[in-house]
Amino acid sequence: MVKKSSMTKMNTFGVKSGLAQMLKGGVIMDVVTAEHAKIAEDAGAVAVMALERVPADIRKEGGVARMSDPKLIKSIMKAVTIPVMAKVRIGHFVEAQILESLGVDYIDESEVLTPADEEHHIDKRAFNVPFVCGCRDLGEALRRVNEGAAMLRTKGEAGTGNVVEAVRQARAVYSQLAALKKMSAKQLRAKAKEYRVPTELIARAAKSGKLPVVNFSAGGIATPADAALMMQLGVEGIFVGSGIFKSANPRKRAKAIVEATTHFDNPDILAKVSEGLGEPMRGIELSTLAEGERLARRGI
């Protein structure tokens, strides 16, 4: 801790959401070892998500998925200089207390892990570490912001390598946001009730036409084209989980997805970086998943 003057303030919402601003236009990669983390950093990741199993393996192996071993998270924090995020179960505020004690840069309250609370998400304002949370639509996004989330990501359907849910959710969030703009004060109050958030929060989103915090896309992104698709739909950056380290050539694919996220509106560059990447992750057609296997439906 550095001694700063009385003119300084720490852990404000501006400081928490400010880091998300710095990550924009970047790719955050799931890593399960310090070695993976180095590969991600070398490929140009803006941050890494430290976890024990990528979502594709969580799906395959089943059981209860929990916060990762602090030892693993610490080894990844030591291996790279870019920000390190880690996941806690929805509602598991003690896992969050532990991650805050480790000093991770961001906590992901994530549907990819098995939920610990079916009714409450974590009160994120009680923490100094900023949180990122998943959402499927505008209501869920604003509920998370109201609880103190400093960054959002659409959930997609993690561990499937299938971008269809990510697309559906991004379209939902941005079309619902556009619809707010046309609403009367009375309609906004009704929306606030429907979304279970304060009218003031809705009114602010309606006026600015933007989410109150940075929004990335997650869950199902497996190719440079997928990343660029999500960027063209309006998200501000990309989370890639299983898509990189479950592919044939993680190093090359990671670098290609980073370049595709920057040059998302330049088909010539997208064509170039998409070339010769080897097999992508196999992927799952979503209609083959049982209801209970749909991770995006977790959370309230």
Binding site: M1, K4, M7, L19, D105, Y106
Partner: peptide
């Protein structure tokens, strides 16, 4: 780089720069 440490050490401040502005 990262001279103050990780995100928990990030902060807001008012910086006085006489050459730039009279106010912090």
């Amino acid at each position: 780089r990262n001279a103050f440490g990780r995100q928990l050490e990030s902060f807001e401040a008012k910086i006085f720069m006489p050459k730039v502005d009279r106010k912090p």
